[in-house]
C-alpha cells in the first residue's frame, strides 16, 4: 500500500526575483513500512521534498498524496492536524521545546492529540525507556547531549505511532557512534512497529542503513534503488539496554 504518491512535482523558489527550480517533475511512490533515504548534495532539493511531503511547504505544481490524502485540498488547519496525527518529524538539531523536560516533550504530542494524563504519561515513559532514556526523563534539553536530544526527538516522533516519520538529516550533528546508535534505534522501530521512515541525508552511514536509496541531483531523481540495509543480519541490540551517554 502506497503511503506516499507524488506525481510531476515541481517546486520553484523566488530568490531576489529570480525563479530557482528546486524540484523538477518528481514522481515518487513510497510503500508503507519502507526505510528510505533521500540522498544528495546540499541544494539538491531533498529537504524541500521532505518539507512538501510533510505539508510544511506547498508545491508549485504536481500532486502529493500522503497517507491517502491529497495535500492540495487540505486547509492549513487540516495540514496541521494531519502532521499531528499521521506524521512524526525529526529535524537536524534543536528539535525540542527547551522549557519542557524529555518526558514532557514526548508527552506534548499526545497532549495535543487529547490523550488522557495516565495513558499519556505511561506511553511517553515506555517510549523513552525504549530509546534508552529512562533515567533522563526529567532532564531539560540543555541538560542532554546532542545524541540524547535526538533520541528524545525520535521518541516524540513515534510516541503516537504515526504512519510516517520524516527525518531531515537526523545524524548531521552527531558523532558517528551516536549517529549509528540512533539509526539502529530507528531501524529497530521500523521493523517492530512497521513505521515508514524517510530520511534526507548526505551521510554515507545513513545511506548504508537505508533499504531504499533515492538520489536527488538538482531537483531530479537520478536513481532509486532498493537494497539491503547494512544492518540486516546484524545482532539487534535491545533498545531497552541502550546506554545513555551524555
Amino acid at each position: 500500500m502506497a503511503i506516499i504518491n507524488i506525481q510531476d512535482l515541481v517546486k520553484d523558489y523566488d530568490t531576489n526575483g529570480i525563479a530557482v527550480r528546486a524540484l523538477r517533475n518528481v514522481v515518487l511512490t513510497v510503500e508503507k513500512g519502507e526505510f528510505t533515504a533521500i540522498a544528495g548534495p546540499s541544494g539538491s532539493g531533498k529537504t524541500t521534498l521532505l518539507n512538501i511531503i510533510g505539508g510544511l511547504d506547498s508545491p508549485t505544481s504536481g500532486t502529493v498524496h500522503v497517507v491517502g490524502k491529497d495535500l492540495a485540498v487540505l486547509s492549513p488547519k487540516g495540514l496541521s492536524d494531519m502532521r499531528l496525527e499521521k506524521i512524526g518529524f525529526i529535524f537536524q538539531a534543536y528539535n525540542l521545546i527547551p522549557v519542557l523536560t524529555a518526558l514532557e516533550n514526548v508527552e506534548y504530542i499526545l497532549l495535543l492529540q487529547g490523550t488522557g494524563k495516565e495513558e499519556r504519561r505511561g506511553r511517553a515513559m515506555r517510549i523513552l525507556e525504549e530509546v534508552g532514556l529512562g533515567k533522563e526523563i526529567n532532564r531539560r534539553p540543555k541538560e542532554l547531549s546532542g545524541g540524547q536530544q535526538q533520541r528524545v526527538a525520535v521518541a516524540r516522533a513515534i510516541v503516537s505511532e504515526p504512519e510516517l516519520v520524516l527525518a531531515d538529516e537526523p545524524t548531521a550533528n552527531l558523532d558517528q557512534k551516536t549517529g549509528a546508535g540512533l539509526l539502529d534505534l530507528m531501524h529497530e522501530l521500523n521493523h517492530r512497529k512497521n513505521i515508514t521512515f524517510i530520511f534526507s541525508t548526505h551521510d554515507r552511514m545513513v545511506m548504508d542503513y537505508a533499504e531504499r536509496l533515492i538520489s536527488l541531483t538538482d531537483g531530479i531523481i537520478v536513481s532509486d534503488e532498493k537494497k539491503k540495509s547494512r544492518r540486516e543480519g546484524a545482532v539487534i541490540t535491545k533498545p531497552k539496554k541502550m546506554k545513555s551517554k551524555r
Binding site: G54, L56, P76, K77, S80, D81, R83, L84, E85, G88, F89, F91, Y94, N95, L96, I97, P98, Y108, I109, L112, R156
Partner: peptide, 16 residues
C-alpha cells in the same frame, strides 16, 4: 522563532 517553527511543524495549531 525556530522553536515555534518546530511546534507548528509537529502539529501545534497557530492559535495555540
Amino acid at each position: 522563532t525556530r522553536e515555534f517553527g518546530i511546534m507548528l511543524a509537529i502539529g501545534t495549531r497557530p492559535g495555540r
